[in-house]
């Protein structure tokens, strides 16, 4: 079996153990990191094709609000139902918007995506029924009728998040090695040639956009459960900027990069907010700047010998 899959399995085992052993603050941190790793995994799929959306928070927020609204309606806190509702909301939006987005490239792709995310933000902040700028609370997680104590529920949530996130990472790993997945590099390099080989570039990008949106939605649902709260800030451009930042920081070299990047980011954030609350954005900015200038391939490129020789 290939090394990436083995690595993912090891990470899954570590998380499952962690869900039992970690102190409670670390449980939340790990859950959020995994949730955001899903968003970043989706961005990686797009980044491979040279596409960088500046509004991926749209799907993150749609996932969270989709789950939150459905659960509020049903008066339940069921994680499985929430995952279905939120992911479905984000996925359908991604499929729908994909028809338009797939025709855009570069800065125009980035800007249209930003516009969509800000549209949602504009709707959410003024919607009194959804709590406006304050948002609303998500009920304590339950699992298919099982309602453990809140402390236990958080641990179970981490285990669920780990299983889901690792599963998705493995699936995307297989996808990225496939013909369809590798078409991303071809599209980034030369769209005209892709068309002249007989493939539809738009369709390929549409599929990637749908995948990315679905993953972001799933990440949004998990974040909502972990934080116990949803607000319009999830759709704001700064949230999108942060996702792009972590994606670029990790690099597009491997599906392990989103997990590593997301963790590193959450840990640095937690400590920085604790010890240097007034300088933590500056630290993040400086790191981003250094990576852009020194490591165009992201942190992951440190582990690679050379492009093109990565194990298939």
């Amino acid at each position: 079996m290939d090394r990436t899959i083995l690595g993912l399995l090891a990470i899954l085992a570590a998380f499952l153990a962690g869900s039992l052993l970690l102190p409670s603050w670390a449980v939340s941190l790990a859950t959020v990191a995994l949730a955001k790793a899903l968003v970043i995994l989706g961005l990686l799929v797009l980044l491979r094709a040279g596409l960088v959306p500046f509004g991926q928070a749209l799907f993150f927020a749609l996932g969270a609000y989709g789950a939150g609204m459905a659960l509020r309606e049903a008066g339940s806190g069921d994680v499985v139902a929430g995952l279905f509702a939120g992911t479905a909301a984000a996925a359908s939006a991604a499929v729908l918007l994909g028809f338009l987005m797939a025709r855009y490239r570069e800065i125009f792709f980035a800007m249209l995506s930003l516009a969509f995310s800000m549209l949602l933000y504009g709707l959410l902040v003024k919607n009194a029924a959804l709590g406006g700028t304050d948002g609303f609370n998500v009920p304590a997680p339950t699992f298919l009728g099982w309602a453990p104590s809140p402390a236990t529920a958080r641990r179970v949530l981490l285990a669920v998040a780990a299983a889901l996130a690792i599963g998705c990472h493995a699936a995307i790993h297989v996808y990225l090695r496939s013909t369809m997945g590798r078409l991303a590099t071809a599209i980034r390099d030369n769209e005209i040639r892709v068309e002249y080989l007989g493939a539809s570039v738009q369709r390929a990008i549409h599929v990637k956009f749908a995948i990315a949106g679905t993953l972001a939605g799933m990440g949004g649902v998990l974040t909502a459960f972990s934080a116990g709260h949803i607000d319009p800030g999830m759709s704001y451009w700064t949230a999108s900027g942060e996702f792009v930042f972590v994606t670029v920081m990790g690099g597009a070299g491997s599906v392990l990069a989103p997990i590593a990047g997301s963790f590193l980011f959450e840990i640095v954030r937690t400590y920085a907010v604790e010890y240097a609350p007034q300088a933590w954005q500056a630290v993040v900015g400086a790191v981003l700047l250094v990576i852009i200038l020194v490591l165009p391939g992201g942190l992951w490129s440190l582990f690679q010998r050379r492009r093109g020789t990565q194990p298939p």
């Binding site: 800065i107 980035a110 933590w280 954005q281 500056a282 900015g285 700047l289």
Partner: peptide
Amino acid sequence: RLVYGRDEVVAALATYAVFLILEDF
């Protein structure tokens, strides 16, 4: 001047990084 010639999106990201730094400044 270090990002001239790079992709437009990369240049935008570099200015985003500067933006974050200046916010704390």
